Simulated scan of single mutants.
Amino acid sequence: MTEGRVNESNGCGIRRRIRYDRRAEEPPSIAAAMALAQYYGDDVTAASTQLYDYIDPDALDSLFAETNRGGSRANGTVEFETDDAVVTIRSERVDVRPLD
């Protein structure tokens, strides 16, 4: 399993904010799944919330992949909602917060 770093803020419990710092070699889809599992307090292999129920993991990884010219898309951001959370994905991290 991957070893990204999770930072929690705003108290404890299921409605906390999660910040997952992604390693450079870790696909964004794996980082998002890890952050969601942490948010819900689940084991990522048995998580109740599946990433593919909300976003295509392959398409997500493609959005952050190197370009044909060898450049990166480091400034991009993808945001989507689950039933009760907002997930924001950047090249270096994933943030999960409660829906307002």
Score class of each variant (00 low, 15 high):
Asp100Arg: 13
Arg19Asn: 13
Phe64His: 07
Cys12Trp: 06
Asp53Ala: 14
Val44Lys: 07
Thr77Glu: 10
Asp56Ser: 14
Ala31Pro: 05
Leu63Gly: 03
Gln38Pro: 05
Gly71Leu: 05
Ile89Leu: 07
Ile89Gln: 02
Ile30Leu: 04
Tyr54Lys: 05
Ala46Lys: 15
Ala35Arg: 07
Leu51Gly: 03
Val6Phe: 14
Glu81Gln: 12
Ala31Tyr: 02
Thr49Lys: 10
Gly11Arg: 00
Thr45Met: 04
Ala59His: 10
Thr49Met: 13
Val86Ser: 11
Asp53Leu: 11
Ser72Arg: 02
Ala24Lys: 07
Tyr52Cys: 09
Arg90Tyr: 15
Arg69Ser: 08
Glu66His: 03
Ser48Asn: 08
Glu66Ser: 06
Ala33Ser: 12
Val94Asn: 09
Ala32Tyr: 07
Glu25Phe: 01
Val96Leu: 08
Glu92Gly: 15
Tyr39Asn: 13
Gly13Thr: 09
Val96Lys: 07
Arg19Lys: 13
Thr49Trp: 07
Asp61Ser: 02
Tyr39Gly: 13
Glu8Asn: 15
Gly41His: 04
Gln38Arg: 15
Val44Phe: 08
Ser29Pro: 01
Leu63Pro: 00
Asn75Val: 11
Asp58Ile: 10
Pro27Ala: 03
Val78His: 00
Gly76Trp: 08
Glu66Asn: 06
Arg90Ile: 13
Arg5Glu: 06
Glu8Phe: 14
Thr49Phe: 10
Asp56Arg: 09
Val78Thr: 06
Gly71His: 05
Ala37Arg: 05
Glu25Val: 01
Ala24Thr: 10
Ala31Ile: 01
Glu81Ala: 13
Thr88Pro: 03
Arg23Pro: 02
Val96Ile: 08
Asp83Thr: 12
Val6Gly: 12
Ala47Met: 06
Ile30His: 02
Pro28Met: 07
Ser29Thr: 00
Ala35Asn: 07
Asp95Ser: 12
Ile30Phe: 00
Pro98Trp: 04
Cys12Arg: 13
Glu81Thr: 10
Ala46Met: 15
Ile14Ala: 13
Pro28Thr: 10
Asn7Pro: 00
Val94Thr: 07
Arg73Ala: 07
Leu99Arg: 13
Leu60Glu: 00
Asn68Pro: 12
Ile14Glu: 15
Gly11Ala: 03
Glu25Leu: 00
Val6Thr: 15
Leu63Ser: 02
Glu3Ala: 12
Asp84Lys: 09
Ala46Glu: 15
Pro27Cys: 00
Ser9Asp: 04
Asp21Gln: 15
Asp84Gly: 11
Ser9His: 04
Leu51Val: 06
Arg97Lys: 10
Tyr39Glu: 11
Pro98Met: 04
Gly71Gln: 06
Gly13Leu: 08
Ser62Cys: 04
Val6Ser: 15
Ile89Lys: 00
Gly4Cys: 09
Asp53Ser: 14
Ala33Asn: 01
Val87Gln: 01
Asp95Asn: 13
